[in-house]
């Protein structure tokens, strides 16, 4: 491996950006491919698929053998609101391989006792997320029911290009939410990125089923994301 490639690869990984180490097994030469790098042809298609699935593997193209080693940042699920749905969501997120964290400034809600296996931040989303910045490998579920808590978090998620943004609430609640976001300078293209009512449409009843709908929506968005050719966040 080229030492320059190793340094470049480690830098990408430490900064939570996806990268592929592409090795030509015929001659041992390698290069680092970022999601934003354009790669054409059959190899480009294989790279695109590898970024989506996160699966490393060998491929044969026109008599040459390549190995694609995919390094994806571990996806984070940031939940705003220490509510019942968050309690049900925590073990599901863990099982699906997401690092979940809960942010809720209402310290009576956000207690470690209620959420034994999850990082809980009893502070305002804006403050927590400045310390722990969002990126395109983050999903956000906004569940607090309080615009003072939810709106600033949504604003930051939209700006960071989170791969999934879901917001709890009825269509009426969401219509009002969109109006408030528009006064902050967001347009329809932005607000259409918010999944509301939150989660896959499975007719969910109660916190547990809504949590299933949310984690399903997060997984679906993750496997359909396409950062190729976009500016990195």
């Amino acid at each position: 491996m080229d030492p320059f490639c190793l340094k470049k690869l480690n830098k990408e990984r430490l900064e939570r950006r996806a990268a592929i180490l592409l090795t030509d097994l015929t001659d041992g030469r390698d290069r680092v491919v970022k999601e934003t790098d354009p790669v054409a042809g059959k190899l480009g298609e294989a790279i695109r698929k590898a970024f989506l699935t996160g699966q490393s593997g060998a491929i044969e193209i026109d008599g040459s053998s390549f190995f694609l080693n995919v390094y994806l940042p571990s996806p984070r699920l940031v939940v705003i609101g220490a509510v019942h749905i968050s309690e049900a969501l925590a073990p599901m997120a863990k099982a699906a391989g997401y690092e979940m964290e809960i942010i809720d400034p209402r310290s009576a809600f956000a207690t470690p006792e209620r959420f034994p296996d999850v990082a809980v931040y009893a502070d305002w989303p804006h403050d927590v997320l400045l310390e722990r910045p969002l990126d395109s490998y983050c999903a956000m579920a906004v569940l607090s029911h309080d615009p003072k808590i939810d709106d600033p978090a949504l604003e930051m998620a939209l700006k960071a290009g989170c791969f999934y943004i879901g917001a709890l609430g009825s269509r009426t609640t969401h219509a009002k939410r969109i109006e408030r976001l528009k006064t902050l300078g967001f347009n329809d293209d932005h607000t259409s990125l918010i999944n509301a009512p939150i989660g896959l449409d499975i007719g969910a009843v109660g916190p547990q089923e809504i949590a299933v709908a949310i984690i399903g929506g997060v997984i679906k968005a993750f496997r359909a994301r396409d950062n190729l050719g976009k500016d990195g966040n």
Partner: peptide, 30 residues
């Protein structure tokens, strides 16, 4: 920022390289 599962092999390889050690990397291909 810290990677999730220290010690990370490739981070260690880079450190060893900077220390002037000779390093080999083995990767599961299939």
């Amino acid at each position: 920022m810290v990677l999730q599962q220290p010690p990370d092999p490739l981070i260690i390889a880079e450190r060893w390289m900077l220390e002037g050690r000779d390093v080999a990397i083995a990767t599961v291909i299939e």
